[in-house]
Each structure stands twice: as C-alpha cells, then as structure tokens.
Design a protein around this nucleic acid. Sequence first.
DNA 1: CTTGGAAAGTCAACAACACTGACATAAAAC
DNA 2: GTTTTATGTCAGTGTTGTTGACTTTCCAAG
Lengths: 175, 175
Amino acid sequence: MICDEDVMSERQSPGGQSLLFLTDEQLRKGIEAMFFAYRGFTADPDRILNKYGYGRAHHRALHFISRAPGTTVNNLLSILGVTKQSLNRVLRTLIEDELVESRVGTRDKRERHLFLTDNGTALEQELSDAQRERMRQAYREAGPEAVQGFRTVLEAMMDNDMQRHFTRMKEGRHD
Amino acid sequence: MICDEDVMSERQSPGGQSLLFLTDEQLRKGIEAMFFAYRGFTADPDRILNKYGYGRAHHRALHFISRAPGTTVNNLLSILGVTKQSLNRVLRTLIEDELVESRVGTRDKRERHLFLTDNGTALEQELSDAQRERMRQAYREAGPEAVQGFRTVLEAMMDNDMQRHFTRMKEGRHD
DNA sequence: CTTGGAAAGTCAACAACACTGACATAAAAC
DNA sequence: GTTTTATGTCAGTGTTGTTGACTTTCCAAG
C-alpha cells in the first residue's frame, strides 16, 4: 500500500538522531488522508443521528457527557470549543428529549452538572458502537505499531489546549 | 507520553501472528484524539480563510483544484462528497473573485475544467503553507515510524470510495 | 449586608454550509 | 431524434456556528 520512500525520506545524522526530509508532496498526502479519513470517521454516527433527527453537535455533547458524567456546562464549553449559545441550543433539545439530565450543583448552585439518562446512554452507546467498530476495523488492519504511531501524530497535531483536555480525559480527570 | 499498554494490548500467538485486544476505552481515546486533532488540523487555515471572508468549503475546492488542475466539476463533486448546489455556490464566488478559472472542455464541451489563477494559487499556497507547517511539526515530533503508522490507520479508516480517490490522488491521476 | 462579578440561560439576528426538489441548457450518446 | 449526461440556477430548509444584549442566580470580597 504505502512504500517507505512514499511516506518519508529519512537520513541518519552523525550524532545518531534521525533528520526528516518532508517534501510538500508527502505533507499534502497526509493532509488529504486526514480529510478523507475524517469523513469515514463521522460517516456511521452521522447516519444514526440522522435517523433520530440529531446532528454531529448532539453526538459530541453526548460523547463527552458520557465520558465525564457530572461535568459542568463551562467545562463542556471549553472542551467543545463552541459558544455557550451554540452548546445551549443542543443541550436544551437533549434535555427536553430526556437524553440528558441537568442537576443544579450542590457546592455551587450556579453550576449545572450534566448526566446521561437511560435513553441518553442508549443513544450514546449506539453511536459509540458504530464509531468504535470502524476504529477497531482500522486498527486491526493497520496493526499495533501503526496504531501507536497514529496516536502519536494525532497528539502532536493538537493545539495545546486540546492536548490538555485530551490528557485530562485519558487520566479520567473531569472535574 | 503514550505508554505501550495504553495504546494496545498485544499478544503473540503460537503461529507468530499478533492478536490485538482492543478495549472500548482504548478505542474511545482514539476517537477523541481524532476529534481534537482535526480541530488543530483546520485551525490555521480557518484563521486565514476568515481574513479573506472565505470558509472551509473554499479551502477544500482550492486544494483539490490545485492538486488536480483541469479537473471537472463532476470529479470534484465526487471527491468532496457534496451536492452540486453546495459546490456551485463556492465555485461561483471563487470564479467571480478570479481565484479559479473555468474552461469549457475541448473534447466534451459539456464539461468545465477548473484551474487556479495566479491569485488562486497564491491563496492556496498561503493556506497550504500553514497547514503543512502544522503537519511538518507534528511529523517531526512523532518521528518517521509514527508517520508511517498514522497514514496506514487513516487509510484503513476511509470509506472505499474515499480510498479510491486517495489512491488516485497519490498516483497523480486526476482525469 | 451590600455589591461585584462569575456561571448559566435566553432572545434575536446572522452567516456558512450542507440538503432537497425543480427546472434549464447544452452537448454527447444511442 | 430521443435520451442521457454535465452543468448551472432558483427557492426553500436545517444544522451549526457566530455576535451582541440582557436576565437571573449566587458565590465571595469588601
């Protein structure tokens, strides 16, 4: 599929550290791969969401509430990187449809803590199952070393803020 | 950053082929990495596009016309995976603004072949430079093996149609 | 206790970008 | 000569994002 010279020209410097010679062509291929892959990445959930009359924004909210149950609206805002008005529109419909529950904070009553209801959990599962299945397939095809590299490059591609969120997520911290 | 056990559980079967044990947790991390990374991937071009009053759709059109000069509208449609109405809105403004030139086909006069003008090439360069710089940075940080893996997983994540387009693109075929 | 400011929610207006459906024109294909 | 293909266009709609203005709630500092 992808031959070595296709991906990267590499030379060994005297000091032992490897210098990379990345041509514009090789970088452009990476860009296109990212574009096409993201389409695949979202295709399955999009189909399911459409079935229920929801959009990608609903998926994202469900995903991160599922990952960090009890998260506040503000925390979700900073993870998703949208305005509160935009998030609020989505949250409102999810709460109205009883997929998400908003509980007033005990320590700070201004804050709303978000949880998935049983229905919410069910939809999140359906979406997640589809997306994970595609991921699992890709991982299986590519093999373990490829997956390691995949994750490493993706992490290096994030903004600092996103890296922070990603790391906190990995560590199970979501306060 | 990412420890081995974090990414994938691997066992060596007697036959020598490695079996992968992918937990939902590991797959979810991959999903989140993809989400955050794509934001970083588009952040720089988005800033530039905003400056000129264009959007992501204009970038995509410019990119693929630059990659496949003389491509037809139909080809572009199938690459981008949008409706002709959606693409047409974008193309019209790019042609009006003299970033893209549309030439009637010689062999088949129904077809329009698309080319970047000098101005179009300039903007495409500006966008591409920013995106390639981020890509280069990520590749450098991650190292050559990681890049190989990155590309392999991305390709496995694409739909078949997208894989076809991607392969044709790689081979420089765009007829 | 009062007040400043943070957190959350709401309303209105708007823009980008996707969609569907219908229709028009030109040219190739049969 | 009819049909199909490629392209373009008009109108309407929906999701998701934006800004700006405003209110309510409530913690915390003075």
